[in-house]
Design a protein around this nucleic acid. Structure first.
Length: 259
DNA sequence: ATGCCCAGCCATGCTGGA
């Protein structure tokens, strides 16, 4: 089972590039972030024509997540538990039925800038709720994957210019430690388990020629429960998409499971 | 110190992103 997470930065703007990528790369499961569309306006047809089941959790203009899967999906849920008043569409889950059943969670973690401030408080609150859900996934003792745009630069080696991010919500100590608290429950950062060196990025700003200067950051992550980590055979980033026509500012991060 | 670029919107300048 090949799973990719991809922040597409708008389904309307990215549809041709996304379809080209799906046709070439053929993920079994793709979790998408920042669809920036309500569910009713999501263009399901081109995905269904390609054999993908489509589950979305969108909102107008901002945020929004989706799961595309060529394998059957069961028990789809939307929204991160823990705050009934949270209107922001940032979390979706489904069980993917492959050779093994894998619980796949797609997430778009709040950016949190400017920090300090209410947006950073919301980010930390959201991460606290994520930790609660992560603990429940561990308690299930089943293979589970939490994949998406975490908006966290875990360590300085995950940024080309760490000093430029030192006071940013993506790298502040409070944000990093909230991310580590989730890892410390017993999750594996799939990419870091596969590749120990720094200098691997999943996002390059549109501004100031960041891509051409390889001025990137690694903020899209795949976290695995121990049962999922046991099944992992590979994990990689596909940076090439960033150099194409009309790209997203993020690129896909992949994990392959024996499932 | 600030904007750069990009997407979306009952828009033609603003918010949000990271």
């Amino acid at each position: 089972m090949k799973i990719a997470t991809f922040n597409i930065n708008g389904i309307k703007a990215r549809l041709p590039a996304l379809l080209d990528w799906l046709d070439e790369a053929r993920p079994d499961v793709a979790v998408l972030q920042e669809i920036k569309s309500v569910d009713a306006a999501f263009p399901r047809d081109p995905f269904e024509e390609r054999g993908y089941n489509v589950e979305t959790h969108g909102q107008k203009s901002f945020n929004g997540v989706a799961i595309l899967s060529r394998l059957p999906l069961e028990d789809v849920t939307r929204g991160l538990p823990g705050d009934e008043g949270d209107e922001q569409a940032r979390w979706i889950e489904a069980t993917v039925i492959g050779e093994r059943a894998v619980r796949v969670c797609g997430l778009y973690l709040p950016n949190g800038n400017p920090a300090p401030g209410p947006k950073f408080d919301y980010k930390l609150d959201w991460m606290s709720r994520l930790q609660t859900r992560a603990r429940a996934l561990l308690d299930s003792e089943e293979p589970a994957v939490m994949a998406g745009d975490y908006n966290i630069i875990p360590q300085d080696e995950d940024a080309a210019r760490p000093e430029a991010w030192a006071r940013d919500a993506l790298a502040l100590p409070e944000a990093r430690s909230a991310f580590r608290r989730i890892l410390n429950l017993g999750f594996t950062d799939a990419f870091r388990a596969q590749t120990h060196s720094g200098g691997h990025y999943s996002f390059w700003d549109y501004q100031a020629g960041a891509w051409n200067r390889n001025d990137g950051i690694r903020i899209d992550h795949v976290l695995l429960t121990p049962q999922a980590a046991d099944l992992m055979t590979d994990c990689w980033i596909d940076p090439g998409l960033r150099g194409r026509e009309k790209p997203s500012d993020h690129v896909p991060v992949w994990v392959e499971l024996e499932a």
